[in-house]
Lab assay of single mutants.
Amino acid sequence: ALNRGDKVRIKRTESYWYGDVGTVASVEKSGILYPVIVRFDRVNYNGFSGSASGVNTNNFAENELELVQAAA
Rank of each mutant, 00 (worst) to 15 (best):
V43G: 06
G19F: 08
I10N: 04
K29M: 10
R4P: 12
F60K: 04
A72R: 08
V21H: 02
N59H: 11
N59I: 05
R39D: 06
S15T: 02
L33P: 13
E14V: 14
N63I: 09
G5W: 03
V38P: 00
G50M: 06
R42Y: 05
D6M: 03
K29Q: 13
S49L: 13
G31M: 10
E62G: 06
L67S: 02
S53W: 08
S51K: 04
L67G: 01
Q69H: 10
E14F: 05
A71W: 12
F40N: 00
Y34S: 04
E62H: 14
T13D: 05
I10R: 02
S51F: 08
A25N: 06
S30V: 10
V24S: 01
D6I: 04
A25W: 12
S51L: 11
G50A: 09
E64D: 05
N56A: 07
V24M: 01
R4F: 07
F48K: 06
I32D: 14
N46R: 02
R42S: 07
V27S: 02
V36R: 00
A52E: 14
T23S: 04
I32V: 11
K7F: 07
I32T: 14
K7D: 02
N46I: 07
S49C: 15
G54T: 05
V55A: 07
Y18Q: 02
N46F: 08
A61W: 05
Y45A: 15
L65R: 03
T57H: 12
Y16R: 03
L67Q: 02
T57E: 11
K29N: 13
E66N: 03
G22R: 04
L65A: 00
G5T: 02
Y16K: 05
V55R: 05
K11Q: 08
G47V: 08
Y16G: 03
Q69L: 12
R4H: 08
N56D: 13
R39E: 13
I37V: 12
T23F: 06
Y34K: 12
N3W: 07
R12M: 08
Y18E: 04
Y16V: 05
S30I: 07
Y16T: 04
K7V: 11
K11F: 04
D20V: 09
V68E: 02
Q69V: 09
L2Q: 01
D41S: 07
T13K: 13
P35T: 11
